[in-house]
């Protein structure tokens, strides 16, 4: 009797492990986010209204200077008939290639942001197959941040794509409304759909303030309204306020302080040499 007990118990254990292990394996595969990251992880830059694909030239220059790299810059404009025009280069070997996605129709307004998000999705589908990437970080200036947010909520497919870090610079989540209690239609919609925002997203919202209320164009309260969308939904939501020189709405992307923030939080390259690792753990 006892002789048969151990084989029986082992067999039972193996059987149970097999059944439950299989369940885990299948579960794991079903919600598999592409765990295999492509080597290329571009940084997608989206300009705001009235801005063209040249919007980020100064900022990228500044970043390349600071990090002592020569990352490539590809500029793409999505036309209203969905075709893409390219200029610049894409060099996957460089640390972080930059891709600007701008829109031919760069008007302001909620209805246009909806259209732009669709165009952006179209461009991402084409670019990700053309340049073989499945994860990226994104920076949006002004309305570009709104386009990115809407893209994440409406079009982003976590099974195929992964976003590492999102930084929006002076994005007016509540348009020009200064009173946080008065939510615009867009903010209401964005909050309503915020469950779709990936829970592993690391999000930074940067605001500039020339005076105590705004950066000359966008009210601080409107930037701050982003917290109703991202907070508790994204993995991290950090609100950063930058003051001082070059803090008008249009100067913000090339503002030295913001360039440093991008370097630190999006590129993850720090200026100072890191201290050597301490080997002995306590």
């Amino acid at each position: 009797m006892l002789k048969w007990l151990r084989p029986l118990v082992l067999l039972l254990l193996i059987g149970l492990l097999g059944i439950f292990g299989l369940r885990w394996t299948q579960q794991n595969m079903r919600n598999a986010i592409p765990s295999a990251n492509s080597r290329v992880s571009p940084i997608i830059l989206v300009p705001g209204s009235s801005a063209t694909q040249e919007r980020f030239d100064a900022m990228v220059n500044e970043l390349n200077n600071k990090t002592k790299t020569t990352s490539s810059l590809l500029k793409v404009t999505v036309h209203t008939d969905n075709h893409l025009s390219y200029s610049g280069t894409f060099e996957p070997g460089r640390s972080h290639p930059y891709i600007v996605i701008a829109f031919e129709n760069n008007d302001d307004g909620y209805s246009n942001i909806k259209k732009q998000a669709a165009w952006f999705n179209h461009a991402m589908t084409i670019l990700s197959t053309r340049y073989h990437f499945n994860h990226f970080s994104a920076i949006g200036h002004s309305n570009g941040g709104l386009v990115l947010t809407r893209y994440l909520e409406k079009y982003f497919n976590q099974q195929k794509m992964r976003i590492n870090t999102l930084m929006t610079i002076a994005s007016p989540y509540n348009f020009s409304e200064t009173n946080i209690d008065k939510r615009t239609q867009m903010l209401t919609d964005l909050i309503h759909d915020n469950k779709k925002i990936p829970s592993n997203l690391v999000m930074y919202s940067v605001a500039g303030t020339e005076n105590y209320n705004n950066d000359g164009t966008v009210p601080f309260a409107s930037v701050e309204a982003g917290k109703y969308i991202f907070q508790k939904q994204a993995k991290n939501y950090t609100q950063i306020t930058v003051t001082g020189e070059d803090t008008t709405h249009h100067d913000l992307p090339q503002n030295g302080e913001i360039v440093s923030l991008i370097q630190q939080y999006v590129l993850h390259i720090s200026d100072t040499k890191q201290r050597p690792d301490v080997n002995v753990r306590h």
Partner: peptide, 13 residues
Amino acid sequence: TPSILRAFLGTNG
């Protein structure tokens, strides 16, 4: 995973 089950689980059962 117990070795006997590895091929089984790795091939989705």
